[in-house]
């Protein structure tokens, strides 16, 4: 059986990564099912930093198909450039010039339908890296990383999700921060969404946005409140009003923050911290009979 949980947060820095890595750790330790961690925060993947003994198993180039132009066949009709919604093809008929800009290409294939002269042939172009790690317990970590300076988060996320789709067990997808299309594509085929927030005005504002997306996509979701004790009560009032499940509240403690900053797994360091994650795991998985 396979069960996919996406971990997202409207606001960055609320502890989304903390929740992902510690939940992984606890499921790997105490649950029968196999568990896989997939880092979809492809702009800044950070999950790996919490597993000091991680061993790289293998990796592959994340690529997508980009057309190349055969200028001997091209008649400079401009049809491909008209079809391209992303302005990735330049054609200047009077000077017989045509070129593809791989940085803007979304690999949709529309230009291939446009070209009647067979002047376009697709080649694979690298846009990132996928790396698999053995991290001790569990089925390991799959990390996606986009090449610096590109704007192709979604294709990289699609690629790593495709590669982990058939995993037989519980897959945890650590989403990018925010509420943009890359978050949507991480959440897209998940069975459950955990939204991580903090009890501050920023946290509440961004949670509203994230909860809006989860609702619109028809995903069941619950909220983990990190750093309880700071801020105010507005967040809890919101959760109650909206009838949103509160999965767990993790208190703010300076010693946690210090340990976290050093890249430690808090669920290994503190029994009480591990207990929060046992609660979260049970809350989500029990109802599914897992």
């Amino acid at each position: 059986m396979s069960y996919k949980i996406a971990i997202a947060s409207g606001k960055g820095g609320t502890g989304k990564t903390t929740v992902a890595v510690n939940l992984y750790n606890v499921i790997a330790k105490y649950h029968e099912q196999d568990v896989l961690l997939v880092d979809c925060d492809v702009e800044e993947p950070n999950d790996l930093l919490f597993f000091s003994g991680a061993k790289r198993l293998d990796g592959e180039v994340v690529s997508h198909r980009v057309p190349e132009l055969d200028l001997d066949r091209c008649t400079f009709c401009r049809k491909c450039s008209e079809y391209c919604e992303f302005n990735a093809i330049t054609v200047i008929p009077p000077v017989k010039f045509a070129a593809v800009n791989p940085d803007l290409c979304h690999s949709c294939g529309a230009c291939l339908y446009a070209c009647k002269d067979h002047a376009l042939v697709e080649k694979r172009v690298g846009i990132g890296e996928l790396t698999r790690y053995d991290i001790g317990l569990g089925a390991g970590l799959v990390e996606g990383k986009m090449n610096v300076g590109l704007a192709l988060q979604t294709p990289v996320i699609r690629y790593i999700k495709d590669k982990t789709r058939d995993f037989n067990g519980i897959a945890l997808y650590d989403a990018p921060p925010g509420t943009s299309c890359s978050v949507v594509s991480t959440v897209a085929d998940s069975d459950y969404v955990i939204l991580v927030t903090e009890p501050t005005p920023f946290g509440l504002h961004d949670l509203r946005l994230a909860a809006g997306i989860a609702r619109e996509m028809g995903k069941p979701f619950g909220v983990v409140v990190n750093k309880t004790g700071i801020g105010n009560n507005d967040l809890y009032e919101y959760l109650e009003q909206e009838g949103i499940a509160l999965l767990a509240g993790i208190p703010f403690k300076k010693e946690y923050a210090e340990k976290y900053a050093g890249g430690a797994l808090l669920s290994d360091a503190y029994g009480e911290y591990e207990a929060f994650f046992k609660t979260i795991a049970n809350n989500i998985l029990k109802s599914k009979g897992l």
């Binding site: 302005n87 054609v91 200047i92 008929p93 009077p94 000077v95």
Partner: peptide, 18 residues
């Protein structure tokens, strides 16, 4: 108003107009 590639589109026009 194009989302991306405005510079290239405009440069294209310059060359076309000679």
């Amino acid at each position: 108003d194009v989302a991306g590639g405005a510079g290239t589109r405009t440069a294209e026009k310059m060359i076309e107009w000679n």
